[in-house]
Nucleic acid binder design. Structure first.
Lengths: 131, 131
DNA sequence: AATTATATACGAATCTTTTCGTATTTCAAA
DNA sequence: TTTGAAATACGAAAAGATTCGTATATAATT
């Protein structure tokens, strides 16, 4: 098992991770500004959470200049996978398939989406043959 | 908007809801016994959480006999849908498709699963035609 | 009837997460 | 150089979730 796989981001932390994934390396000010587009958050609140994230090693931080620059230290895909696993576990009795079905059932899908899905199915079927 | 859509179950609450969905109306003792198959939980702890759930109207409770009987007041599907929405929102930038792809990518699928998926795709395509 | 087992009620301790006030440092502008 | 703006550090309050001890009520057993 690698370093800090156990640490799962809290809601606020995840919100910030999303922004870091989107924006790349950013200052607390930049993140806080973005957060404030949606709701009011105090600057020191954001700062504190980002500091905690640094302790947990969810983010890296460059302290060479006065304004520290933070960047995500966990990969978007991996984090998603972890959250997905948890949800499958907690709410879908461990069946990822149930989750997929429900997601498809309750969300809009374009025909491009469906094509993509078909391609994925083919890929999975091939994988099965060559297993 | 209906009554208490805002209340989202906590982790412990969700765990109990799952059992209520599975077992149907149950006493605290029954739920607690099931919980203890996996980990140690004090009886009064389970009781307390179920009482809180009753306040939040996540469960109904029948107090006509000494042993109160609890049953889920929120539907399994709906609750799942809500949690799914949240995850799509929080971790997949609002794209349910991304979530589906990732779920398929990182979880085992049987060929029966894939057949089921294909059927779902067909259904969605038909829905599209008749829209 | 007395005792024991099993419930619920309630409140408080603990733990985690979030929020924020205040002190201090650093840089830039006047 | 003094003043002011903007940053980090730190600690603690506030809010939320979990756990549990204790009191009390109710039912069953002896």
């Amino acid at each position: 098992m690698s370093k800090s796989k156990k640490q799962k981001p809290t809601e606020s932390e995840l919100e910030i991770l999303q922004l870091l994934w989107e924006l790349g390396p950013s200052s607390v000010r930049q993140i806080n500004d973005r957060l404030n587009e949606k709701r009011e958050v105090g600057y020191t609140t954001t700062l504190k959470i980002m500091q905690i994230m640094a302790e947990k090693e969810l983010v890296k931080r460059n302290t060479s200049s006065r304004t520290h620059i933070y960047s995500a230290a966990v990969a978007e895909e991996e984090t998603r996978a972890k959250l997905l696993d948890q949800l499958v576990d907690k709410a879908f009795k461990g069946s990822a398939m149930k989750l997929v079905m429900q997601a498809l059932d309750s969300h809009q899908t374009s025909s491009a989406d469906l094509d993509e899905l078909k391609a994925m199915i083919e890929k999975l079927e091939n994988d099965r043959k060559n297993a």
